[in-house]
Write a protein that binds this DNA or RNA. Structure first.
Lengths: 157, 157
DNA sequence: CCATGAATAGTAACAGTTCTCATTATCGTT
DNA sequence: AACGATAATGAGAACTGTTACTATTCATGG
């Protein structure tokens, strides 16, 4: 779980990840199969969102591409994965925040890579306040927020 | 310009929009043609980012789809448009912030619509502080930020 | 008004994603 | 443990948003 650094707010530990996922799938009448375990495990070991193609590659082709697509689809429906739409129409997935912990993204404008970053509770509280204030003005009922920081990563600057 | 409500920070007024765009194109040795005027005008009148297909439709097919793609491409290169990557691999474009003013997005999780929202300077300053603090911890050199508020819009709640 | 080069329109090619369906694996029952 | 019912998989075809190509049209400078 390289997910979010700086956190004490990790919601589900790695050893319990399987249990949590299995429970979610079971609640939806779905099975926790080999392909699904592989996808979840790969995402748990990643340090940012991955696309279907990237997942396929990281699993060295052990799960066919079409199955990866189907798998991320059901995992998303069940609430285990969350899609993240990136450059050039690439859809990347990552573990939902109730599993991986709430975090934000550092998007490198040079190399396009996306890294997760967890932030301290006080900064997070500030963001939540701002989001609430904005939403209230727009008669918008907020359920979440995404903060992406664009810039140059340490490798590119 | 339905772009960003609540702002006093509008950078370029509607009447001067053409001048600004023309100058940018000229500086890059590009012409401000009919198709390009149509795309800029349509985006200026929109209340959120539009995809190539949506632009094509809003201009009632007066500009062929392939031309829309080419046009948004050059307008992006010249710095007039900014891409916004959304659901299902759709790339939507909107006027760059130096033209439309800095703003954020209200993303409706029900209908998928994206609306622009401008925010007061004090809230914006708060966000910038938070972004700076996060980036500093991650040795990341920030050049911008995107805050998306997810929730239910007034029509869907 | 003509010549030169840019911009366009239409079509073909592409890549990521979704769909289809025959095959295989899984679970509950006997 | 074997069976039957049902879900999940694998391989490829099909679909959709996007890009590339090329002949034609348009705009600008001489």
């Amino acid at each position: 779980m390289a997910g979010a650094p700086y956190l004490g707010e990790m919601t589900v530990t790695n050893s319990k990840l399987d249990k949590a996922v299995e429970a979610s799938l079971e609640a939806a009448g779905q099975r926790y199969t080999r392909a699904r375990r592989a996808v979840v495990g790969t995402l748990a070991g990643a340090d940012g969102p991955l696309s279907a193609g990237e997942l396929h590659a990281r699993m060295s082709g052990s799960v066919p591409l079409s199955s990866v697509y189907r798998t991320v689809g059901v995992l998303e429906e069940v609430g285990i994965l969350v899609p993240h739409f990136g450059v050039k129409g690439l859809t990347r997935y990552e573990l939902a925040e109730w599993i991986s912990g709430h975090h934000h993204h550092l998007v490198c404008v040079e190399c396009g890579n996306v890294d997760d970053v967890g932030i301290p509770a006080d900064l997070e509280a500030t963001i939540r306040e701002v989001v609430g204030a904005i939403a209230a003005r727009a008669s918008f009922d907020p359920v979440g927020h995404v903060l992406e920081i664009e810039g140059r990563c340490s490798r590119c600057s």
